[in-house]
């Protein structure tokens, strides 16, 4: 307790403007908080969706079931990660403000930037764990269906075609594109989380944050169409009045192009996606995350608490 105790001497040293340690402490705490709030029970719902879907599909009989299992699992994964991202991120700031926990944190030598970054990193970690869990489960289900599909090919297809068809199934299931696509699902979830964090940095309630964030994400899905409509109205075949054009420009500029992160829809039809595209999408995603955190900080830095 005395002024010359060792710990006091330790902080007498120069204060670092940015400390990874402090951000990591907040990230770790955020993750622990989320884990103890039992967010991973969400994964059980995911597992049930996959099992339920498998049972329904197994009761029907037609070709292409393996593909459908893949589509629906990836779709469920997309939705679950995005929802998890938005809901978990939207709660953080308003809850800390309301409970005045934020006072105690910011009354420590913690900058608001470290606080925001730590929060985002905590949610990102949680999303990573969630994505990995879902992927493991998905792979088990997919492996089961792959076996089933191959068995059904052997039983039904003309012998001339069996080897070709089996090879096609084997080559088309666990592909690098599939795992790349899952990586992009995770990336998109983190982008959604950063976007939500930015909204919550000026919003006053979590409900407002959730609604605005989800709206921005939905609008993000029509960005490519809005863009082509004002950039290339002749090809689009319509006459765009100036005010509509202005509106479309605003959408294109301020909303993220979420369709670029929809690579899973291409995996669904077995399109091979070049690794260069994955690289570019990842770079773009990281750009979004950086900008959103920066803007969140600008909105939050002077906010009255």
């Amino acid at each position: 307790m005395t002024a010359n105790s060792p710990s006091a001497a330790a902080h007498a040293s120069a204060h670092k403007l940015f400390s990874l340690g402090r951000a990591a402490a907040i990230a770790g705490n955020t993750l622990r908080d989320l884990v103890r709030q039992k967010v991973f029970y969400f994964m059980l719902v995911f597992a049930l969706v996959l099992i339920g879907m498998s049972l329904v599909l197994a009761a029907l009989s037609f070709q292409g079931q393996l593909q459908m299992v893949m589509n629906m699992s990836l779709g469920a994964m997309s939705v679950f990660t995005m929802l998890l991202a938005v809901l978990a991120s939207a709660m953080m700031l308003p809850k800390d403000i309301e409970d005045r926990t934020l006072y105690t944190i910011l009354a420590k030598p913690v900058s608001r930037f470290e606080y925001l970054l730590g929060k985002l990193a905590g949610v990102a970690l949680m999303l990573l764990i969630a994505t990995l869990l879902m992927t493991v489960f998905f792979c088990i289900v997919l492996w089961f269906w792959q076996g089933r599909e191959i068995a059904s090919i052997r039983g039904s297809v003309q012998s001339e075609l069996v080897d070709a068809e089996v090879a096609k199934v084997m080559a088309g299931t666990f592909t690098p594109t599939l795992f790349g696509g899952i990586g992009v699902i995770f990336l998109r979830a983190v982008v959604c989380s950063a976007l939500t964090l930015m909204v919550s940095s000026f919003a006053t309630s979590w409900l407002f944050t959730v609604i605005i964030s989800l709206m921005l994400i939905l609008i993000g899905h029509i960005v490519p169409i809005a863009r082509s409509a004002w950039m290339d109205p002749i090809q689009a075949g319509v006459d765009v009045p100036w005010y509509l054009s202005l509106f479309l420009r605003l959408i294109t500029v301020f909303a993220p192009d979420m369709q670029l992160f929809n690579i899973v829809d291409d995996i669904a039809v077995g399109t091979h996606v070049a690794s260069g595209i994955f690289g570019q999408v990842t770079a773009l995603g990281c750009g979004y995350i950086t900008i959103y955190v920066l803007v969140a900080y600008l909105f939050f830095a002077w906010r009255e608490l």
Partner: peptide, 9 residues
């Protein structure tokens, strides 16, 4: 949203 493929299915 991102559910084109599963909805089609």
């Amino acid at each position: 949203g991102g559910l084109r493929a599963p909805v089609a299915d």
